[in-house]
């Protein structure tokens, strides 16, 4: 299973960045595939990107909502949210563990042999904060005199944009290099700090920042794919916790196995020696009480 996941991460990272003729043709791909939202975080301004970034596209639609309404166009981001919701409702946060190129990068960095730090759990609310404030509210509410907002998350936070688009494009284009100022320097520092954090802590961007993961995480409890924990089979060996990249501690009841933090890498399912974790997949729940206990309803 782990080998399959690794292959999936590599294949999707290559598919999302397959336009390798950019040094000789246009600086970025401009074909029809860019109409599709890639299910992971992958900047569409990356010279090799073949699909659009859902978070960038969603912000763009919200930032131009007011002028659009004045022209009679209702572009509220339904296409992007529909795309993400369709995937999320089937697989939950699985794209984070199996598809996202930035997740793959974090995995590589955490393999570096440096001292490790545990993740401070209150930071786990961060993705919702970034989603609500930087992706939705600021692009909608902070507008210029013509009614146009800005893509706040891309502009001030997103390290994928700096790494995949900013650095390559500045290397390729002298004009862009001359135009780069304090904003690029700030974003470069954010990127470096985040990359350092990734070497110390497992998946810190996914757990503390990523608004895309926050959206997918909302579907973990209602998606077709569900993980199921069987406490009667558990031998408390903690192998699942040691293997989990986001420290979901379900064996002792601290977390729900289908909590929004879980990136559905399925390592707990693979590694459990007593088969205490099982998978279920389907559009209809057979055992409703198991997934929606009355106490939580």
């Amino acid at each position: 299973m782990e080998r399959l996941r690794r292959k999936s991460q590599y294949i999707f990272a290559l598919l999302a960045n397959a336009y390798w003729v950019f040094p000789w043709k246009s600086p970025i791909y401009q074909g029809p595939l860019k109409k599709i939202c890639f299910p992971g975080l992958n900047c569409h301004s990356c010279p090799a990107a073949t699909m659009s970034c859902p978070i960038g596209a969603f912000q763009n639609l919200l930032a131009t909502l007011r002028p659009g309404l004045q022209m009679g166009q209702l572009h509220i981001g339904a296409y992007v949210l529909g795309s993400l919701g369709l995937i999320g409702s089937v697989a939950g946060r699985m794209p984070c563990g199996w598809i996202c190129p930035f997740g793959l990068l974090q995995k590589w960095l955490f393999l570096l042999p440096v001292p490790k730090l545990s993740f401070w759990r209150p930071l786990g609310r961060g993705p919702y904060l970034f989603l609500i404030v930087f992706v939705v509210l600021l692009p909608l509410l902070v507008v210029d005199p013509l009614g146009y907002g800005s893509t706040w998350f891309c502009k001030y936070v997103c390290p994928a944009g700096t790494l995949e688009a900013g650095i390559p494009l500045l290397c390729l284009d002298q004009g862009l290099r001359r135009a780069a100022g304090w904003l690029f320097a700030y974003k470069f520092i954010v990127l470096i700090l985040l990359l350092i954090w990734c070497t110390l802590t497992s998946r810190p961007f996914c757990r503390a920042i990523c608004p895309l993961g926050a959206i997918y995480g909302l579907f973990n409890r209602v998606s077709w794919l569900q993980l199921r924990f069987h406490p009667d089979r558990c031998v408390q060996c903690e192998a699942c916790l040691a293997a989990c990249p986001t420290d979901v501690s379900f064996y002792n009841g601290l977390d729900d196995l289908n909590s929004a933090t879980c990136i559905r890498c399925l390592r707990c399912y693979t590694i459990c020696p007593s088969n205490a974790v099982s998978l279920e997949f389907g559009p209809v729940r057979e055992d409703v009480e198991q997934f929606y206990p009355k106490a939580n309803c």
Partner: peptide, 17 residues
């Protein structure tokens, strides 16, 4: 709209605009 935004270099994303 999504396509048009995605085929132009986003200056905000790269830290220019």
């Amino acid at each position: 709209v999504v396509w048009h935004k995605a085929i132009t270099v986003c200056l905000s994303c790269i830290g220019i605009g």
